[in-house]
Simulated assay, not measured.
Amino acid sequence: MITLNRRTKGEVVFDIVNNIGMLCICFVTLYPIWYVLINAFNDGKDAMLGGIYWFPRKFSLENFSAVFDSPGIMRAMWLTVAKTLLGVGLHVFFTAMVAYAFSRRELIGGKFYILLGTITMIFAGGLIPTYLLIRDLHLLENFLVYIIPVMFSFFDLIIFMTFFRDIPDGLEEAARIDGANDWSIFLRVVLPVSLPVLATIALFHGVYQWNDYFTGMIYMNNESMQPIQTFLYRVVAQSSSNLMMTAVQGSAVTRTVTSQSIKLATMVVTTLPIVFAYPFLQRYFVKGMMIGSIKG
């Protein structure tokens, strides 16, 4: 005889309250994004009248036309794409390479090195010493300032190291029997089976590289070498119509766009690449986030 598992009244009420609470959290999280999106697609002067909450009142693409017609914005966009792709590739490879060495239990002085790295996670030199170091390394006004200082992260090393230690020793032993050295094992055995952690770190650092405005603001006086987020920062910090009209000069649509509409359109343009990239990495990201949480 099959006994039906009837839910109690308290469980039903809990589920209802829980679902309502989650819907409220989702709404509070997503509505600001939706608000920016609908105002970016609305006519700039019409948006200044207010009252736009759910859908564009006067649909227009002129804000985005002004964004893409500006050579300064597009140059900043391409610079951001270049530094993100190059920075992510070098960061993932270099950090994974060091983490593989740290994951070897036979590494002499391994615990001491980990202790030194842990100290750097807790204590930092500060902005002024960092600026002086960047200056002495001749990285001011240099594209490599976006790449070299963040090419290694000890926090990401810990994630890599935890994953590498869970790789069965039999894979490496079989490779060594076939005559493979450490480099061959790392490149041909370890990295191919580490896609979850590679995608996780790539997503973490990719979001950082794409959203980083501070580096361009501090170490770059030449606006042609500043990324899109630094450009957006200047737009927000100096939100005057004169600045925005200068940013979109030469555009035929400057009659209807406003500084606020340009800011919103620029925010959408700078956010979409990360939003589109995340679904392709999500399945690896979920696996990577579970690293070290389950043993056996």
Rank of each mutant, 00 (worst) to 15 (best):
T200H: 11
L243R: 05
D212R: 05
I159T: 11
V150P: 05
R188L: 05
I128W: 11
H138F: 07
V236F: 11
D166W: 01
L144Q: 15
G206D: 12
D136A: 13
Q229K: 07
R255F: 12
Y146P: 04
L171E: 14
R176V: 14
T215W: 07
T254E: 12
E141D: 12
F163D: 03
L198P: 04
N222G: 05
I159F: 00
A174Q: 09
P192I: 06
T162A: 14
F204N: 05
S184P: 01
A175K: 06
D182F: 01
D178P: 00
P227E: 06
L133S: 10
T215H: 07
D178H: 02
G250Q: 08
L232Q: 03
P227Q: 05
V236Q: 15
E172F: 01
P129K: 13
T246D: 13
I122H: 08
R234T: 02
A247W: 00
T162Y: 08
G216V: 05
S241N: 15
E223P: 07
Y131V: 14
S153W: 04
E141G: 09
A202Y: 07
N222I: 00
A174N: 10
M244P: 04
T130S: 13
D212L: 09
R255I: 12
E223T: 06
L203W: 03
N211M: 14
S241H: 14
L157F: 12
P129M: 13
G179D: 09
T200F: 14
F204K: 00
T162P: 05
V207Q: 05
W183Q: 03
L195T: 13
H205P: 03
A199V: 11
F164T: 03
Q229C: 10
V257T: 07
M217H: 13
I185S: 01
T162I: 11
N222C: 08
A247Y: 01
M161P: 01
D166A: 05
I159H: 00
P196T: 03
L203M: 08
L139K: 09
M217C: 07
I177L: 02
D156W: 08
Y213P: 04
N181P: 11
S224I: 07
T215Y: 08
L132A: 15
N221S: 15
R255Y: 13
S239Y: 02
T130A: 15
L133I: 13
V150F: 11
F186N: 04
V207P: 03
S241K: 14
L203E: 01
P149N: 12
V197S: 02
N181K: 11
L139N: 09
V207N: 00
L133F: 10
W183S: 06
R176E: 15
R234D: 06
N242F: 14
P168C: 14
S240A: 10
L191V: 09
A174I: 07
M245G: 00
L132S: 15
F123C: 07
W210V: 08
F214S: 09
S184V: 11
N221L: 15
G250F: 08
V207Y: 08
P227N: 05
G125P: 02
M244V: 09
P129F: 10
S240D: 13
L243A: 13
